[in-house]
């Protein structure tokens, strides 16, 4: 249609030459993206910037000025006030347990559906997925009631069991999709060698799926770390609360002490940043796995 007498593209590197020379625009685009990045990260930077100031410094120089003073009083004060060590420990325990048990449960479910091709496998998957789609509000009161009557109320075991089951629905969905495409020859060969179903799962399937299992465990860990409603309802006593719940309970408590709130926010952010740095690769790769089947 367009009358361009340009010859067919000779090679991929050619693309850079005409485009790269279009002048100042590229720097404007870059500047805009950096401005957008600054905006996205500004709240986090502000928390860091003000968590280490004294209250007077904050009041006189404002939240944007770089610290003229340095104090860890806010951080330490908040840490000991909410007993942050125990919050971190509870969150770690809960998230790690769910990551481990959730992956095992997903593996067992997916083995039956993906490799075993049991009848009703697809229907089972749909029901599991419906289970995680429905709002947790429609489960939370009965779960609260059941936890109370079974003595698991205010124990980490209640959310561990609940999240293991809830997270494994997604895990089952993902892993059974992967296992359906599992090379049949390998399974057949193992069978011929006399391996039973359990051995095939444990010695053949699991090692091959290890990278996917790692992604899944990472997801489960972070999702559980961030969960709010169910831990809020089930873990009442201070000693059993998670980081997420402790943060939520804070709302508006320190309006008059902005540097302490900044310190609290910073403490809440820090574990996530650490996970982000550790899991960055797995995470960004994993979203692909999770979203596009």
């Amino acid at each position: 249609m367009t009358d361009t007498s340009v010859p067919a593209a000779p090679g991929p590197t050619d693309r850079n030459i005409p485009r790269g020379k279009r002048g100042a625009l590229r720097w404007w685009v870059l500047a805009f993206l950096f401005a957008f990045l600054a905006f996205m990260l500004a709240p986090i930077f502000l928390a860091l910037n003000n968590a280490i100031k004294t209250a007077t410094d904050y009041a006189t120089n404002g939240p944007l000025a770089l610290p003229q003073s340095f104090t860890v009083e806010g951080l330490l004060g908040f840490w000991s006030y909410v007993d942050f060590t125990s919050k971190i420990w509870n969150s770690l325990l809960l998230s790690a347990a769910v990551a481990l048990f959730g992956v095992i449960l997903s593996l067992l479910n997916a083995y039956a559906i993906g490799v075993g091709r049991i009848r009703g496998g697809r229907a089972t998957l749909v029901i599991l997925l419906l289970g995680i789609m429905i709002p947790q509000e429609s489960l939370v009161y009965p779960l609260y009631y059941l936890a109370k009557s079974s003595g698991l109320y205010d124990s980490l075991w209640a959310p561990i069991i609940i999240f293991t089951v809830l997270q494994s629905a997604f895990g089952t969905y993902l892993l059974s999709a992967v296992m359906t495409t599992f090379p049949h020859e390998i399974l057949e060969a193992a069978r011929v060698d006399g391996a039973n179903r359990w051995q095939i799962l444990w010695y053949v399937v699991t090692p091959i799926l290890r990278p996917t299992l790692a992604v899944l465990a990472t997801f489960f860990f972070i999702w559980t770390w961030n969960e709010f409603l169910i831990p809020l309802v089930l873990l009442v006593s201070n000693a059993n609360q998670t980081v997420s719940v402790a943060m939520g309970a804070l709302s508006g408590q320190y309006v008059s002490q902005p540097t302490i709130t900044a310190a609290a926010a910073l403490l809440g952010i820090t574990p996530t940043i650490i996970f982000f740095l550790i899991f960055q690769r797995t995470l960004t790769k994993g979203v692909v796995v999770g979203a596009v089947k």
């Binding site: 928390a47 972070i222 982000f276």
Partner: peptide, 18 residues
Amino acid sequence: YYLPQILPISVAGVLWGW
């Protein structure tokens, strides 16, 4: 750009409430 997405929502809430 991805970083805010993985913050616990309650932490984001405290941050923005502040």
